[in-house]
Amino acid sequence: MSQPLIDQWGPLSALMSPGPEEIARIATPTGSEVWLVRGYSLGRSVLTDPRFSRAAALRPQAPKLNDAQPAADSMMSMDGSRHARLRRLVSGAFSTGRMARMSDFVAQVTDRHLDTVADLGPGTDLIGHLARPLPLFVLCSMLGIPEEDTPLFRGWVEVLFDIDASSPREKARRRIELIEYMTDLMDRKRRAPGEDLLSDLIAVHDRGELSTNELLTLGLTLLMAGYETTTGQIGLATLSLLTDRGVYEELVAHPDRVGKAVEELIRLNPVTPLTFLRVATEPVPLGEVTVQAGEGVVVALMFGNRDAEVFAKPESMDFVSGRGTPHLTFGHGVHRCLGAPLARLQVRIVLEHLLRRFPTLRLAEVEEPVVWKDGLGIRGLSRLQVSW
């Protein structure tokens, strides 16, 4: 049940070379030099230490990892009380209770897409017919975006996430289109509110607790943060199982172990191998080095999740007893991913339904059944063709 380090990083490949040091100085694709933290414990320290600032990383003179950074007024780019205030406004949407109520809905949408897969027959692409449309439909439903508008969002969001595949001019044009659409949608919801997250946030705005710009940016942040990452994680989790037939067959025989298997799949092959950059606001001792004020730090979540000092047999899956130590894929501390419960829910339901409906699922016998998506700051597949 050993899971290999799936070696596909695209533009991030130069950053992800394994090494013996827990922290090392590396050069980024932008020409900046930053500290790369590979160890689990040091990584948690970075993610919880307020001296490592997300807001400082957006300053013009700060080192840069790539150009796929959130906006300065995004919740992901804030520190302290500003971040806490916005996070508090939306945290209820991802509560355990809300996720439990969404379970049946996600299951229904998953089965609808799997019906399409079954109708299309062997050779079908699971990314295009399941992993990509499912998270977008779920997010749009949560936010209150009309179903007929979801194809527009797919084009907008994918261009904004890529690193190499589109020009700055194209990114700017798509960003403006998306902002114009969201502004119009919020105006419509103000006149006719629904039972959705955007309507709730508009009500908060109208009480004076949220500025117009914060309202718009928060809606875009929730959409963009939850779409491509969940699509990628569904694809990577499925690919991991299909490259180890013994694991897939064991889960078919023991579906009660899928929950623990999801955590191991997310730990071993995270869609986000690196955190966003943080910048030290003062000298901070970190392992055997001192990070000086103004220097950047990124945490290699992939390597932290496979730290042999923390995880016994770190390259193997343990979905029988499970791990006592939480992985870092969703981050740690105040910036821990708000949407983690929703991502877990979707990955778990997809795998449960795949295992039940397609117990003999395997990679299709075609020339190139697996194609990696290029140009993204996160890992993912553009094609995963399967047979059964």
Rank of each mutant, 00 (worst) to 15 (best):
F105M: 14
P60N: 13
L178C: 02
D374Q: 14
Q292L: 07
R25L: 10
L328Q: 03
V46H: 09
A261R: 04
Q61W: 12
P341F: 03
P193G: 05
A261K: 08
P270Q: 04
E148D: 12
L58G: 09
L351K: 07
P60G: 13
W372F: 08
V34R: 12
V258I: 14
A14L: 09
W156R: 08
S74Y: 00
P29G: 13
G80S: 08
A24G: 10
V204P: 01
E309I: 02
G246A: 07
T272G: 03
A118G: 02
T329E: 02
V106C: 09
Y40L: 07
S211I: 00
R188E: 04
I127Q: 13
C140Q: 03
V34P: 02
T183S: 11
R54L: 13
R112Q: 15
A225D: 12
H335T: 04
T230A: 11
T221H: 04
G287T: 09
Y40H: 14
A280S: 03
R257V: 10
H83F: 09
L86G: 12
V297F: 01
N269T: 05
R257A: 14
A100F: 07
T329K: 02
S199T: 04
P273Q: 07
R51K: 11
P369T: 05
V247Y: 11
I6G: 05
A172S: 10
A84N: 09
P285E: 05
D187Y: 05
V310D: 10
L381A: 07
L201Y: 00
P4V: 03
P273H: 03
